[in-house]
Amino acid sequence: MIVLFSFVFIFLGTLYFLAQEITEDQVTQYEPLEEQEFIVQIADYAKVLQDKYGILPSISIAQAILESDWGTSELSIKNNNYYGIKGGGTEPTVTMTTKEFVDGEWIEVKADFRKYASWQESMEDHSELFAKGTTWNENQYAKVLTANDYKEAAYALQESGYATDPDYPGKLIRLIEQYQLDQYD
């Protein structure tokens, strides 16, 4: 009888616990595991690349999140391109439709994007792009590398022409702050 009573007590207590309302604060504090796994997956390599090239890990991680939609975009899944890096020449590429912000409006265009053997290769190429610049301007991303913090680096990316989205720096900064990515810098 005591065992039955104990079971009923535990069962009812569990039901009571499950029936409690979850507050809005509890919901906003919850981070889906998949997102945290993505961050953890690339954070250590981002730190290695910081030592090698000087790019802040928070910027590298935030760009990977934004550009690849947490590693779920077609470009990242099929081609390991976490940064939307365009390609041409002898590099392996894939042609895809993308959106660009031109003359104050969003338009769809077809563009050639780099294909990579692994996500690490994509991260390495991303860091090399900042360190070596482009074929037409080797100092194109110099301000990104010399930035004192992630906010300055985010705005330097925009000024350097990395993305056409006028809110690109704001999106990166929000991601960095929401997920505390600056802890990896």
Results as ranks from 00 to 15, higher is better:
M1R: 11
V3S: 08
S6V: 11
F11R: 07
F11D: 03
G13C: 06
T14L: 11
L15N: 05
L15W: 05
Y16T: 07
F17N: 08
A19M: 05
A19S: 03
Q20V: 00
I22W: 05
T23Q: 04
E24I: 10
E24N: 00
D25A: 11
Q26R: 04
T28R: 15
T28E: 14
E31M: 12
L33T: 13
E34K: 14
E34N: 14
E35G: 08
Q36S: 11
E37L: 12
E37V: 11
V40W: 12
Q41N: 15
I42N: 10
D44T: 15
D44C: 13
Y45I: 12
Y45A: 03
K47P: 12
L49A: 01
L49Y: 06
Q50R: 10
D51M: 12
Y53M: 06
Y53E: 09
G54K: 05
I55C: 09
S58P: 15
S58F: 15
S58M: 15
I59W: 14
S60M: 12
S60E: 15
I65T: 03
I65M: 06
L66R: 13
L66C: 02
E67L: 01
E67Y: 03
E67C: 07
D69Y: 14
W70N: 14
G71A: 12
S73N: 11
E74A: 14
E74L: 03
I77A: 14
K78G: 09
N79A: 04
I85D: 07
G87K: 05
G88V: 03
G89Y: 07
E91K: 02
P92I: 05
P92R: 04
T93Q: 06
T93S: 01
M96E: 04
M96R: 03
T98H: 07
K99A: 04
K99R: 08
K99D: 02
F101S: 08
F101Q: 02
D103W: 01
G104E: 02
G104L: 11
G104R: 13
E105W: 12
W106Q: 13
V109R: 15
R114N: 08
R114Q: 06
R114F: 01
S118H: 02
W119Q: 00
W119L: 04
F130Q: 09
F130T: 06
A131L: 05
K132R: 13
T134V: 03
T134C: 00
T135P: 01
N137Y: 11
N137E: 10
N139M: 11
Q140K: 13
Q140F: 08
A142S: 15
A142W: 06
L145N: 01
T146G: 09
A147T: 08
A147C: 10
D149M: 09
E152G: 05
E152N: 03
Y155L: 02
Y155D: 10
L157C: 00
L157F: 11
Q158S: 13
Q158N: 07
S160H: 04
S160F: 07
S160D: 06
G161W: 05
A163L: 01
D165T: 00
D165R: 03
P166V: 01
Y168A: 12
P169W: 00
K171E: 13
I173G: 07
R174A: 14
R174Y: 13
L175E: 10
I176D: 09
E177H: 12
Y179A: 02
L181V: 04
L181T: 09
Q183S: 14
Y184M: 15
Y184I: 07
Y184R: 04
